[in-house]
């Protein structure tokens, strides 16, 4: 008797939990749904009152506007290219430095590592103006190099990779050393495969940053041909103020690749983020 009362009480609590969670899902997903639905409406339908929820007929003209009147696919290509370079660059440079800081003894190592950590304390808005002036001096404004160059170097990534290299037992390295391996082979053949979870986490976090970053690409590249998507969206919004379907189509197309990658690598995304909380 008491047991059933208890169960009934629990199920009321569980129901409340579900209501809150489902409400949360609705609030999370509704803007995406609205973005999707608006992008398939005509301009006239988008501003009709009362608004229609579903498009009266699924119209593709907003997507054609994007393709025809903007270098939209060019911006897409720019974003893909710079994101790949930033991710590849950070993975290479951070794992090299992380390995050296974690497993090689050399004079000044700890001081240099502390110097790297100091970078973590500097907010990005503090650096952006002098970084811009540097790019200007190097005559790199309005080039894709300007978008990725400063972002190849990451103190956070180095710190993260160092933590992973530190966790590898010394015996493995000693055994390889006895077999006559030098640092090069130990690094590539033994250590790198063992820190794969770290590389994947850093990779997805960096990709998320590189794909979505707005301020830096927007400042260094003002010609639409050289813009990345985030900057391109602000340009699109400025050009087509009232063409809401096209604006929504641009926004939707810009977020789809990362959502797909997230769907595939969700475990790594979530673990990568959780890791920053534990190790940061």
């Amino acid at each position: 008797m008491q047991r059933s009362v208890h169960r009934k009480k629990m199920s009321f609590g569980t129901m409340l939990v579900y209501i809150v969670l489902i409400l949360g899902c609705f609030i999370t997903l509704a803007p995406f749904a609205w973005m999707f639905l608006t992008s398939f409406k005509t301009q006239v339908e988008a501003v009709s009152i009362p608004p229609s929820i579903l498009p009266r007929h699924w119209d593709l003209s907003s997507y054609l506007t994007l393709s025809n009147k903007l270098p939209f696919w060019r911006m897409y290509g720019n974003t893909v290219l710079t994101a790949i370079i930033i991710v590849a660059g950070q993975l290479t440079l951070c794992s090299l430095a992380g390995y050296a800081f974690a497993r090689i003894r050399f004079p000044g190592r700890d001081a240099l590592f502390v110097l790297c950590l100091a970078v973590l304390m500097i907010p990005s808005s503090f650096l952006i103006l002098p970084q811009y002036l540097t790019m200007q001096k190097l005559k790199l404004l309005n080039t894709l190099r300007a978008v990725f160059l400063p972002n190849l170097f990451s103190a956070f990534g180095t710190f993260l990779m160092r933590q992973f290299f530190m966790a590898i037992p010394q015996e493995l390295e000693d055994a390889a050393r006895i077999d006559g391996c030098g640092h090069g082979r130990i690094f590539v053949q033994i250590m790198l495969p063992l820190v794969k979870p770290g590389l994947v986490s850093l990779g997805v976090l960096t990709l998320r940053f590189a794909w979505n970053n707005l301020m830096w690409p927007m400042i260094v590249n003002t010609s639409p041909e050289k813009m990345t998507l985030a900057a391109g969206l602000s340009y699109l919004q400025g050009q087509y103020l009232t063409d809401y379907p096209s604006i929504m189509a641009g926004a939707l197309l810009s977020i789809i690749p990362l959502i797909i990658i997230y769907a595939i690598f969700q475990k790594q995304f979530i673990e990568g983020i959780a890791l920053t909380g534990i190790k940061g």
Partner: peptide, 11 residues
């Protein structure tokens, strides 16, 4: 968290 803030702000 994985979508760009620029696109989110637009919608």
């Amino acid at each position: 968290t994985v979508t760009m803030s620029a696109a989110i702000a637009m919608v």
